[in-house]
Design a protein around this nucleic acid. Structure first.
Lengths: 115, 115
DNA sequence: GTCATAGGCAACCTCCTGGTTGCCTGTGTT
DNA sequence: AACACAGGCAACCAGGAGGTTGCCTATGAC
């Protein structure tokens, strides 16, 4: 049932994990850098930051674990690229919440105006 | 320039803060509970969780600080409600990233197929 | 007035996270 | 072969996050 209904708490857990991964300025910066299209090496991604290569590596692993990013080895370097699905999941969650919220507000408004 | 262009790093910082706030299962659960529409008291929000009232309060403060939630005092209780704007901001960021990413992929595809 | 309820404040504790450094391995390059 | 470059692994450290407990205040109910 990987793509089926999944219990609400499971959605919550995976969504939270993705948000947590995105909830760090450095990591969000990496994600932004990766929107360029081409997969980039760790050394390349490190350039421009104030961090060590190891520091950046750790962040990349975090992003990879929740599926926001994918790594592929090319020769001696490992390049990272965005993975749209996880981002879509996160967006999906926000869409869902916003939708529920809007509906609720609409209902409240209707109720108030009904008199 | 609160609603104007804002430098990229500022967007990064505030987005990261919102994601970080959402990046906790308990907090995401609270957000979900609040999509119902009516503002809810702390005691009410605590019921059903395994946490202390104080624990929940802390989480609510976190959500409030990044603007995901708003609190209003009613008598002796303080009720919390969702605030759509912050969620929209987060969604906006994801939309932007996805868009950039899709565009980049399209360009790559065009480039490869051009031969 | 008295009591119960809703919440704020502060101290405290534990564990995770972000970050570093040092060293080892693997892959190119010349 | 010798060297340089890209990265992995592990230990280590400081600070922040999640969570609890204890106590105090304010508001509502009787």
């Amino acid at each position: 049932m990987s793509n089926r209904i999944r219990s609400g708490t499971a959605v919550l857990k995976t969504s939270a994990a993705i948000f947590a991964a995105l909830g760090d300025e450095t990591r969000l910066g990496l994600v932004t850098k990766l929107t360029g299209g081409e997969p980039q090496s760790i050394a390349h991604l490190t350039a421009g930051t104030k961090l060590t290569r190891q520091g950046v590596t750790k962040h990349l692993r975090v992003l990879e674990e929740v599926g926001v990013v994918r790594s592929l080895k090319v020769g001696r370097e490992s390049r990272f690229a965005l993975e749209a699905k996880a981002l879509d999941d996160a967006r999906g969650y926000l869409d869902h919440v916003s939708q529920q919220w809007d509906d609720a507000l609409a209902r409240l408004k209707a109720f108030v105006e009904q008199e």
